[in-house]
Amino acid sequence: MTAKLIPLRRISGDITEMSDEALLAACGTGDAPALGALFDRFHTAVYRFAARLPMTDELARDDLVQATFLEIRRAAPSFRGTSSVKTWILGVAANVARHTLRAERRRRAHQARYLERITDAPELLDAQVERRKLLARVAEALAELPRDQQIAFILCDLEQLPGVEVARVLEIPEGTLWRRLHTARKAMRAAVEKATR
């Protein structure tokens, strides 16, 4: 694995024309506009990741997004170009999620609200009702997974990020990632299929 050398430099010129890597490098030098530009480019992805974590409600979601971008600013100098910036940023979000949102009680409370949101639907046709129930079961199965498996499933299967890069940014062996993913899929598959029998 060869790491790319990202030059550390401050922003000059039109910020909208800068590559993600250059912005991240500038951010690593403490350049606030670069952090703002990174937020503009990637906050939707981070919000989406946060929203997909079953435990997160609006409050926790904002916390996670803020903490992620502050951590990005701190950790930017450690970016080595071995993954895309988007994968790296979502990896930071995943690590923040693992470290800051562990309280199990909180998780259960949020999980209940999350499932409520999915199943709470106005009058629907039968087929739609069935579909919603199925989705609720998927959400429930995702919520029941251990946090590491949730993250693997969200990043690889829902965000469709390359597994090799995900393993790198999560700082775990590639085999570990595939195992988590396999276990997560298997458990979710079983839960959903059980519900549809």
């Binding site: 939707t44 919000y47 989406r48 929203a51 997909r52 609006e58 979601r61 904002d62 949101r117 999915i118 199925l134 989705l135 998927v138 959400a139 995702l142 499933f153 299967d157 829902l158 899929r185 979710m188 598959r189 959903v192």
Partner: peptide
């Protein structure tokens, strides 16, 4: 099929 289904989960953005 599971993955396709999971991608349909609602994602509410603020």
């Amino acid at each position: 099929a599971l993955i396709d289904l999971a991608r349909e989960l609602p994602v509410a953005l603020p």
